[in-house]
């Protein structure tokens, strides 16, 4: 039994079927990178794992416990599964510190002082302790995204989902976010990334999944996927990435 098992998951938006019987399993401490053309369902898959989208078929199990379907305590699930979004989605009316302590104090009922201490420790780690009292729009994109990651980490999730978190960043700010992810990977955080950063995927991924038309078309260790893709679609995708100078 895997840590996270996604079995035959189907997701429809109206007439548009985005996930068409997708299977994927993730082990603890793995970093799984989802790559593929836009619209292939990467983001939708992550949102389904976090319970932000309801699925219409199949099931998802975390530690053997089914986390989809009726009667699941989604609030409890989300304490264990964090997600970081492409557009940061920090709360603009709260300071950085408040952004981070909101969920621990309200959801975990952690005392305010303890939550703040923890948040400051996390901020120190990413070198943003001096921004604790700043508002999100006083930060650069890269800083905002690092705060968003730390906000998810403050809940001590057992699984972190990252949805194209560098896509909205200026090129020179991408590295500071990737460095943080690299550290998390080394510490053994289980992560699923939807990403277009092929170089990064090559470097840190335990497994790379090429998604196409709502299913995992091909999966394997990064060396294999990037150097010897077996399927035609994967080859086409990677060669257009290389053409764009992104690999």
């Amino acid at each position: 039994m895997s840590f996270l098992e996604i079995k035959n998951v189907r997701k429809r938006f109206g007439a548009n079927e985005v996930l068409r019987g997708l299977n994927l399993s993730v082990e603890e401490h793995q970093v799984v990178c989802l790559i593929g053309p836009s619209g292939c369902g990467k983001s939708t898959l992550l949102r389904c794992v976090n319970g932000l989208e309801e699925i219409q078929g199949g099931e998802i199990r975390l530690h053997g416990d089914r986390i989809t379907g009726p009667g699941v305590d989604l609030n409890a699930l989300r304490r264990d599964v964090g997600i970081v979004f492409q557009s940061f989605n920090l709360f603009p009316h709260m300071t950085v510190l408040q952004n981070i302590t909101l969920a621990p104090t309200q959801v975990l009922r952690m005392p305010e002082a303890e939550a703040q201490e923890k948040a400051l420790a996390l901020l120190r780690r990413i070198g943003l302790e001096h921004k604790a009292r700043a508002y999100p729009d006083q930060l650069s994109g890269g800083q905002q995204q690092r705060v968003a990651i730390v906000r998810a980490l403050a809940m001590e999730p057992m699984l972190l989902l990252l949805d194209e978190i560098t896509s909205a960043l200026d090129p020179e700010l991408v590295s500071e976010v990737l460095n943080l992810l690299r550290e998390l990977a080394q510490e053994g955080m289980t992560m699923i990334l939807a990403t277009h950063e092929m170089g990064f995927a090559k470097e840190v991924a335990s497994k790379v999944c090429f998604m196409y038309e709502g299913v995992v078309h091909e999966e394997g260790p990064p060396e294999q996927i990037f150097a010897h893709p077996r399927h035609e679609r994967t080859q086409q995708f990677l060669s257009s990435i290389i053409e764009a100078g992104r690999l």
Binding site: N50, L52, L74, R79, N89, V107, A152, M155
Partner: peptide, 9 residues
């Protein structure tokens, strides 16, 4: 999405 994903009701 951001708030719910953190476990807030």
């Amino acid at each position: 999405a951001a708030a719910r994903s953190l476990g807030l009701s």
